[in-house]
Design a protein around this nucleic acid. Sequence first.
DNA 1: AGCAGAAATTGACCCAAATCAAATGACCGT
DNA 2: ACGGTCATTTGATTTGGGTCAATTTCTGCT
Lengths: 250, 250
Amino acid sequence: MTVSTDALPFAVSDCGDCTIRHRAVCARCSGEELAELEKIKFYRTYEAGQTIVWAGDQMEFVASVVTGIATITQTMEDGRTQMVGLLLPSDFVGRPGREVAAYTITATTNVLMCCFRRKPFEKMMERTPHLAQRLLQMTLDELDAAREWMLLLGRKTAREKIASLLSIIAQRNAALQLRKPADQMTFDLPLTREAMADYLGLTLETVSRQISALRRDGVIVLDGKRHVTVPDMDKLLLEAGDDSDGGFFN
Amino acid sequence: MTVSTDALPFAVSDCGDCTIRHRAVCARCSGEELAELEKIKFYRTYEAGQTIVWAGDQMEFVASVVTGIATITQTMEDGRTQMVGLLLPSDFVGRPGREVAAYTITATTNVLMCCFRRKPFEKMMERTPHLAQRLLQMTLDELDAAREWMLLLGRKTAREKIASLLSIIAQRNAALQLRKPADQMTFDLPLTREAMADYLGLTLETVSRQISALRRDGVIVLDGKRHVTVPDMDKLLLEAGDDSDGGFFN
DNA sequence: AGCAGAAATTGACCCAAATCAAATGACCGT
DNA sequence: ACGGTCATTTGATTTGGGTCAATTTCTGCT
């Protein structure tokens, strides 16, 4: 892959792909700093279904998702599993200062990650204030998402959970495609029923039933198992039980 | 209150109370920086039961809890509420860069907070790298706690939820008092049954029933409603369904 | 000490979601 | 077209925790 480290604010380089054009690591880095990142960076690909990191593994890198979708899950000894994070392009993976992974990360689609060797990345963080500042903003966003998710897990009904997940996916799609979250809306589910169940703290049967119910009630239209159309976004948001803005402030 | 801004690494000043002796904001700040923090800092007290911040309020400060316990909660229009954070001494409150509070914060005991005016604090963060670095570490810890909590909310039974909460409180007490998490262990519940229910995604009746069940089964001993003794910590951890270390890596 | 109000317990009943079990559909390579 | 595997749907039944309703126990307060 070709690499350009020249330092125009929006220089498009490989690093750009994972750190500038997305909302990721080094948006405000100088050319010198970019060059330094280049040196400790490498790419990895994973196939759909492959485990990227096992909980307990030694972590030799931190990374940024370039393309594809991965999940962060926690599992109890008896096999009960709960998804605790969803990784989309531009999301950061790993924790500076942590040697051992706390969670299992699994690719749900093919995934391309831009990895930085952990030790030098940590060293660089000490010297480069906006790296920590950027990471702080991203982590605070994740924490907000986790809290929204906790409300869902603790207090919402199965139907509300499904509606919430669908509107989260719909809104993210809208954000990526820069369409306004208006009327007609169409997208593919990036998760199996089982993954959705692990996300929502349900069984896959309940997920299936509630999706069928929402279809019967005309809240969504299904085309195949995975392709969803939302004829009336407001109706879906209402079913999700969120306040009107869908839970997004800021 | 007397304030000393002289710059010995562990100078005990008012600021020290909330930022050095606890694990909080400015552990690595220079004397100059401490002096700067002094200028934008003030104290506030809240009585048990009082709301500190309403979701949607303008936030004029960020803060650090000095003494007491507060909760972060989210509420749906129909009144269902879920606790999404528990604030203990040294915990940070508020989000730099956010004008409007996303959550309601309530004092469950009398609370003393050390507040910093938000705007100058944000300015200072830009100039002072270790502030952001410190905050990043704290936020990552909170995110880990939130993820542990998500597993609890999504996949644990009522009994496991109660056992988990009790062991979290027990272990925190052990940490503060520097006792090893050994056999006999005793503490007061800082939360009402209702607050515990909001923490765990249960009703207060279920909380009450499960506490009674754990008492009947000899896992805990109650002395009054609030004082708990754990005769065998391992047994409690087993009931919590966590891996043996109680879910703490790092 | 005695009373009022809040916090907590306990009981009876019900229902949403889990569990167990089959059937159907989609996609693959041959 | 033909099995074979995996994902999904749908049905029948059970159950854990919610709901509704009394008590009982604490905690001030005068």
